[in-house]
Simulated scan of single mutants.
Amino acid sequence: MIDTAYFPLELDFRNPEQLHGNLSQWKLAQLGISRLESSATNFKRVDRQIDESEPYFLITMPTQEQVQFSQSNHSVVCNPGAFILERSDLPYEFSYRKDNALWVIRVPLSQLRTRIREPERYLYMEFNKQKGMGAVFFQFMQSIVQQASDTDEASHSVLSNQLIDLLAHSLENDDRVLMSRESGLRRVHLLNIENFVRGNIQRSELSPEMIACACQISCRYLHKLFKDSGQTVGQWIKELRLQSALNDIQSDRGHTTLAEIAYRWGFNDQAHFCRLFKARFGRTPREMRQVKSPF
């Protein structure tokens, strides 16, 4: 069950003779939510277990005891009342020394990237879930779980998107992230760019020139800002559009035509949209509408 809730892991129980545990899971469109209660355990993810076409992040929230997490020469301690992010596509080690209960959300990395640029910036940090947006995020997750059996698939898709949005807001509101890896001026420019693009993503004419003009910077500087992100401006916009279209296709269940969804997210040519969609997700929009979410 651990493999289905998270992904393949090696488990080492500190006191095997006193082992106990319980795992509850909820499927919510593209998200997986779980609550694990267990005795002291060490989880380890090694290279041979990493074989995924779609990387995931785990958002882990201990409720009783602190946990220790290490990955890529980084270590962080997460206390009850906080949460941390872990990535699935690199080895890591995670442990707690006493009985513990953990809430864990499994979210595709691509879903985070449609809300926040470079979600990897938020790794290896402890975030507060007892006040501000962190508390809103945590409480909303709990309310979703409580009502999961009384809500349908279409509602699950809406709620999962709202939960990811709240997670993104709680991360971006952290002052440590605002000042990390980027100068204050560069950060301001990137936030302006993100806000403009998200507000105009449905316009087919959206272009680097339009973005640069609206944000009062040069096109050359715009491309320079994205140089270290691993994506060009155009690639980022395309990913935002495709992920938004995917969300609509999975949640709409046939009430809106595929052509309407394509136009809604800035694709003027439906054939071109279908080619891009299949190249990104491995299925055509029509095929994707006919399958259930894998989570």
Results as ranks from 00 to 15, higher is better:
Gly81Val: 04
Gly32Pro: 02
Pro80Trp: 06
Ser53Phe: 06
Val46Arg: 10
Phe69Lys: 05
Arg35Leu: 13
Leu36Lys: 07
Gly32Tyr: 02
Val67Leu: 14
Gln64Trp: 05
Leu36Pro: 04
Lys44Asn: 10
Ser39Cys: 07
Leu23Pro: 06
Pro80Asn: 12
Phe43Leu: 14
Ile59Lys: 02
Ser70Asn: 08
Ser72His: 04
Thr60Pro: 01
Arg48Trp: 02
Ser39Asp: 14
Gln49Asn: 04
Glu65Cys: 14
Leu28Pro: 01
Asp47Ala: 07
Leu19Ala: 14
Cys78Ile: 14
Ser72Asn: 14
Glu65Ser: 15
Ala29Asp: 15
Asn42Ala: 11
Glu65Val: 15
Leu28Ala: 04
Gln30Thr: 09
Leu28Trp: 02
Glu54Ile: 12
Glu52Tyr: 03
Gln25Met: 11
Ser24Pro: 00
Gln64Phe: 07
Ala40Tyr: 03
Ser38Arg: 11
Tyr56Ala: 01
His74Met: 06
Lys44Leu: 08
Phe57Ala: 00
Trp26Thr: 03
Ile59His: 01
Glu65His: 08
Pro62Asn: 07
Gly21Leu: 04
Phe43Asp: 09
Gly81Tyr: 08
Pro55Val: 00
Ala29Cys: 09
Glu37His: 12
Ser53Pro: 02
Leu28Gly: 10
Ser72Pro: 01
Gln18Val: 02
Leu23Lys: 01
Ser24Ala: 08
Leu19Pro: 01
Asn73Asp: 09
Ile50Lys: 07
Val77Ala: 08
Glu37Cys: 09
Gly81Pro: 12
Ala40Ile: 08
Phe57Glu: 02
Lys44Gly: 06
Pro55Ser: 07
Val46Asn: 06
Leu23Glu: 07
Ser34Val: 14
Gln66Ser: 10
Ala40Val: 09
His20Ile: 06
His20Gly: 14
Asn79Met: 12
Gln64Gly: 00
Met61Cys: 08
Asn22Val: 00
Gln71Phe: 04
Tyr56Ile: 11
Arg48Lys: 09
Gly81Ile: 11
Gly32Thr: 15
Gln68Thr: 13
Gly32Gln: 13
Glu65Met: 10
Val77Arg: 09
Ala29Tyr: 10
His20Lys: 11
Ile59Trp: 00
Leu36Ala: 09
Gln49Met: 12
Tyr56His: 13
His20Gln: 12
Ile59Cys: 11
Ser39Leu: 10
Gln64Glu: 14
Ser75Glu: 15
Thr63Val: 09
Ala82Asp: 15
Val77Gln: 10
Leu31Asp: 06
Gly81Phe: 06
Ala29Ser: 15
Asp47Phe: 03
Gln49Gly: 04
Leu23Trp: 04
Gln18Ser: 12
Ser24Glu: 14
His74Lys: 11
Pro55Asn: 01
Gln49Cys: 02
Gln49Pro: 06
His74Gln: 15
Tyr56Ser: 08
Met61Phe: 04
Ala29Gly: 11
Leu58Glu: 08
Arg35Gly: 00
Gln68Tyr: 11
Gln71Arg: 08
Lys27Pro: 00
Arg45Trp: 02
Gly81Asn: 10
Leu19His: 14
Glu52Leu: 03
Arg48Ser: 11
Asn79Lys: 12
Phe69Asp: 00
Cys78Phe: 05
Cys78Trp: 10
Asp47Ile: 05
Gln68Leu: 11
Arg45His: 06
Ile50Arg: 03
Val67Cys: 13
Glu54Gln: 13
Thr60Ile: 07
Phe57Ser: 02
His74Thr: 03
Arg45Ser: 04
Val46Trp: 02
Gln64Thr: 13
Asn79Gln: 15
